[in-house]
Simulated assay, not measured.
Amino acid sequence: MEFKETQPIYLQIADFVCEKIISKTWSVGQRIPAVRELAVLLEVNPNTVMRTYEFLQQKDILYNQRGVGLFVSPDGPKNALEYRRSEFMQKEMPSFFKGLQLLQMDLDDLEPLYKKYKKQNA
């Protein structure tokens, strides 16, 4: 995983975990990789992964089964989607809209491109 300098690493890992849940790679009730496992996979400090997991537990995306591990919570997919949408709207959309305005484009210009993208990536 390549990390950006513009966002804390633990939040980028949270995005990665949410993506796995939203895409159904990790399903409700499924045990997710242990802290050390994910740290090795992503080549980060285990404390960073622990911080990510604590953050996602606060958001009710993951839950801890003491002595067993971390699992995707029953509301995990819904909460992960809400979290990612909120982050997208707050962090990425303003820059995107600024670009549209600068280039004198509107949403009608994007619709055929978006439809094409969805068709190719279905």
Rank of each mutant, 00 (worst) to 15 (best):
D108S: 11
E54S: 14
I22Q: 08
T52N: 07
P77I: 07
R85I: 15
Y114M: 14
G67L: 12
G99D: 10
L100S: 02
Y10W: 09
E82T: 05
A80G: 04
E87L: 15
R85F: 13
I13N: 05
E87Q: 15
L41P: 00
P74V: 06
E43G: 14
D60Q: 13
N79I: 03
R84M: 14
R36D: 15
L103V: 01
G69H: 03
Q58D: 15
M93P: 02
G29Y: 09
R36L: 08
K4H: 11
F88Y: 15
S23M: 08
L42R: 06
A14S: 14
G29E: 07
P8V: 11
T6G: 10
Q12G: 10
A14P: 05
A34T: 12
N47H: 12
I21D: 04
N79A: 02
E92C: 05
E92A: 09
I13K: 07
T52L: 06
C18W: 03
K20I: 05
L107P: 00
F97Y: 07
D60P: 00
L11G: 04
D60H: 10
Q104Y: 02
M50S: 15
I22A: 09
Q7H: 12
D60R: 12
G99T: 04
S27Y: 08
T52K: 06
L41D: 13
I22W: 03
A34F: 12
V44M: 03
F97G: 00
K4M: 13
E111P: 03
E5V: 07
D108I: 00
S23K: 13
L107N: 01
K78F: 14
A34I: 07
P8Q: 09
A80Y: 03
Y53S: 10
L41V: 14
E43T: 15
S86T: 12
Y114E: 08
E87T: 14
Q58N: 13
A34G: 14
G76W: 05
P33D: 03
V35D: 09
D60M: 09
M50P: 00
G69K: 09
S86Q: 14
K24N: 13
F16K: 02
M93T: 10
I13M: 12
F71S: 06
E19Q: 08
P112R: 06
S86V: 05
V68F: 11
